[in-house]
Write a protein that binds this DNA or RNA. Structure first.
Length: 467
DNA sequence: TTGGGG
């Protein structure tokens, strides 16, 4: 038998994972189903690296990690979905403390990635530079696809959080849909993710007199998203911002394509300016879930039911109904979310919403009237979907405050609206506040005919602050 | 070389 022939034979031989694990320091060929994709990052050396996890029939539950190194992100595997199939040629089995893992050596290893779905084509959607496909590969790919139909690799973790249950703290798992990805600064990314549920409201810590110089932001990104981008977002359920700003590593977040369902592992949640923020760490991992993942289907179905229902657009924690702190006319008009308001296709429109008032400008009721004596106040409103500024002017203010009450009455009303605890020690401005859910009527209009959408404003009308 | 598991 010639050397050429025997090399050729070796290249066709795929080891079962369990057998490969006994071949430490040897070059082997593997074929497996991808269950987890680590975030790509810059290695401590000169390369980019990422880790994926694969399973096969011999090792269906725990799987084995494969470590890739490459000169740039483009050369790393770009896995489209967990459940896809990867063929690994001449990779090295490595023993490490308690476990065994696989090293993809860029000098002699190669890979090819195929769709995992049964019936899809046998052409890989990504191949590494040294990969040579052979006709007989098909048999192995078809075999694995068939196996995954009966044995769906467990991709979605059972301990994952829903946005409605997030808490400040460490190392959570979140299953969500990626809505938008943008690089805000060099190497600093912001992800916009969603699962159809409402993140819980949080206490507001700013002082009233800070609002002029240091207003509560409407969003965490320094450049607000364009209306075009917002219009593609679902209008029910929190859009969570996620950032890697605390992380020194260069993460391969460009791999996260909008529209994908993803499971993030080892992420933190923080509150910034009263807004929830997901924090990616260098040890964070993500795995793409197939579109028909059970958890993803459940989220979509729950969202659809909620979006279609007459009253379920109000926030989850607004139960059973908004507080009686405010009252509105038009009681029969269903509530919409602030994302509905922001993405409404016409400039001039009227809405009824359930919101929290997180700040007012001016900060003190004594300044709510302009020198001419009419009301003019800017409120910062939020619901689980967005924050907006809404103004109260003139006769809408008379309706809102029920005329021109005494300053003491105004302070009481203001405190009730902003969720300030009534305490005697005059330090109420120091305490965090928890604004109640209140209903309000909003109208939108533009103030510049030459820039209709850019000059859109929101006003409160037909709303009374009962207190 | 680099990273890898809980």
């Amino acid at each position: 038998m010639s050397n050429l022939k025997s090399d050729d034979d070796d290249d066709y031989k795929f080891l079962r994972i369990i057998d490969a694990m006994a071949s430490i320091n040897q070059k082997v060929n593997l074929i497996g189903v991808i269950t987890e994709i680590g975030i790509s990052k810059q290695s401590r050396g000169t390369d980019c690296c990422c880790t994926i996890k694969i399973v096969d029939e011999s090792n269906a539950s725990s799987g084995i990690s494969v470590n890739f190194f490459a000169e740039n992100f483009e050369k790393l595997p770009h896995v489209e979905s967990a459940g896809d199939i990867i063929q690994l040629v001449r990779v090295v089995m490595k023993s490490h403390r308690s476990g065994v893992n696989v090293l993809f050596d860029k000098k002699f290893s190669s890979f090819a990635i195929y769709e995992g779905r049964e019936g899809s084509k046998f052409t890989p959607y990504q191949v590494s530079s040294k990969f040579h496909g052979r006709d007989r590969d098909k048999k192995f790919i078809a075999g694995l696809r068939k196996w995954t139909v009966s044995h769906r690799p467990e991709t979605a973790s059972s301990d994952s959080l829903s946005l409605k249950d997030i808490k400040q703290g460490n190392q959570s798992t979140l299953i969500c849909k990626v809505l938008h990805v943008c690089e805000v600064k060099d190497g600093e990314w912001m992800l916009f993710v969603w699962d159809g549920t409402d993140a819980p409201p949080v206490n507001i810590h700013t002082k009233f007199d800070e609002e002029f110089d240091n207003p509560l932001p409407l969003q965490l990104e320094s450049i607000p998203l364009s209306r075009n981008v917002l219009c593609k977002f679902p209008t029910v359920g929190t859009v969570l911002r996620m950032t890697n700003s605390n992380c020194n590593e260069k993460l391969g977040l460009h791999l996260l394509k909008p529209g994908k369902w993803v499971q993030f592992k080892n992420i933190n949640f923080e509150v910034r300016y009263g807004l929830w923020c997901g924090i990616l760490l260098s040890k964070s991992k993500f795995s793409f879930l197939p579109d028909d993942d059970d958890h993803a289907i459940h989220c979509r179905r729950t969202y659809e039911e909620r979006a279609e229902s007459k009253w379920d657009r109000k926030p989850f924690t607004c139960l059973p109904w908004p507080s009686k702190v405010t009252d509105t006319d038009h009681q029969d008009v269903p509530f919409v979310t602030l994302m509905d308001v922001l993405t409404y296709p016409e400039v001039i429109a009227k809405f009824r919403c359930v919101v929290r008032v997180v700040a007012t400008l001016p900060g003190h009721p004594r300044d709510f009237k302009a020198p001419c004596g009419t009301y003019r106040i800017r409120l910062t409103l939020e619901d689980p979907t967005a924050r907006i500024h809404a103004y109260i002017y003139a006769e809408d203010g008379v309706k809102f405050f029920e005329g021109y009450p005494s300053i003491d009455t105004m302070i009481k009303k203001h405190n009730a609206l902003l969720g300030v605890e009534e305490i005697d020690d005059a330090d109420s401005d120091e305490k965090p506040r928890n604004p109640p859910w209140v209903e309000c009527c909003l109208c939108s209009y533009n103030i510049d005919e030459t820039d209709v959408w850019g000059s859109i404003r929101y006003r409160i009308f037909d709303t009374t602050l009962v207190g």
